[in-house]
Design a binder for these strands. Sequence first.
DNA 1: ACCTGAACACCGTTCAAGT
DNA 2: ACCTGAACACCGTTCAAGT
Lengths: 212, 212
Amino acid sequence: MGGRREEILEAALAIADERGLDGVSMRAVAERVGVTPMALYRHVGGKAELLDAMVGHLLSALLPPDRSRDRQEPQRWDERLAALARAVRAMVRRHPWAAPLLFSRPAVTPDAVRAVDVIYDALIEAGVPDREVPRLERLLSTFVIGFAASEVSGRFTSGDPDPRGHRGSHPEGGFPAHARLTPWLRLPADLATEFEADLDDVLRLIEAAAGR
Amino acid sequence: MGGRREEILEAALAIADERGLDGVSMRAVAERVGVTPMALYRHVGGKAELLDAMVGHLLSALLPPDRSRDRQEPQRWDERLAALARAVRAMVRRHPWAAPLLFSRPAVTPDAVRAVDVIYDALIEAGVPDREVPRLERLLSTFVIGFAASEVSGRFTSGDPDPRGHRGSHPEGGFPAHARLTPWLRLPADLATEFEADLDDVLRLIEAAAGR
DNA sequence: ACCTGAACACCGTTCAAGT
DNA sequence: ACCTGAACACCGTTCAAGT
């Protein structure tokens, strides 16, 4: 059905995956579709709307289809939250351009609200007081998106190897805690393990909030 | 002292505060300094370096000057971490354009490393095993920057009032947890309170990691 | 040493015009 | 209904030239 719009969206997603978010210009998308840039404006409102649609497309694949949900739903609340968190991280790793967009646009599309509803449901089952559920949903999602964004943007790859030339002078001089921790400062090659440990801690935090 | 470079940096910061990050173009900065765009390239390497310098400027004001640190340092570890977290949130609220930059650039400048060192020091004092300190620093900073970024970018202002036209059909239909939580879905006007509650939870998480 | 003019290869978007 | 051409008001950056 509205084939043209889907075609535009596919082109934009392909360009973002290949060349990053900066590569997604109306002109580049138009060229890939085989049309002049102005022709796009019949089908998408403008660039902002196109970016929204791109995020929406990713979010729609985040959860299993509605049908299979209430049928099985086998896991405990914490396993359901962990699974969703891992899915978000995997999505951002596959499509790093999505990270900044996830932070800037509120979750108003049906798919986004559906994901939030899954989290609410798990938090309720965990025993979190209704009053506290929205806050803990925001805490959890902030952490998960923040971790994934940091990972793909390179914020975690600072450590001390210092890729930029921040001319030596002090290897650790003036930073006593860094000096003491030198054996542990190398960034773990396996951020998946760190993500799991963090997730575990945050799920315990939720458990603590439930038993209060 | 390289007056010209400082002048350029001041101009860029002023424009960012007034018109947002998109307003910061080499051409706009040059015009404010009273020079042609190409003259800037003598003093800053390019736009990326200018953006780095802008973040660096904010970070340099985040901590009290080095002198006063080891003299007093009156508070407990958790109060020190909370104070730093509040300072980051206040900084991002005052300069919302900094939020995306904080996520994309690693903390390699001396000021950034100094802030990380303060966190390391507090975590050590809390009793966190050395091995776990860097992970928990990343967990804490990810949450703090993520919260501030979400707040200023409007990610938290989704709730349900739905500012965009996502044509009704279901007020809560199909979202059972949302339905149950309706009384609690309105976004708290006071995000400071939510930030404090989150911070409290995360500091307890650290305490738990310390006693393991 | 510091700055300028002109140019290159781009942007998003509007508007009148075509079929 | 859908698309195009030309234009407007922008970008970052390079390069040769000026003082």
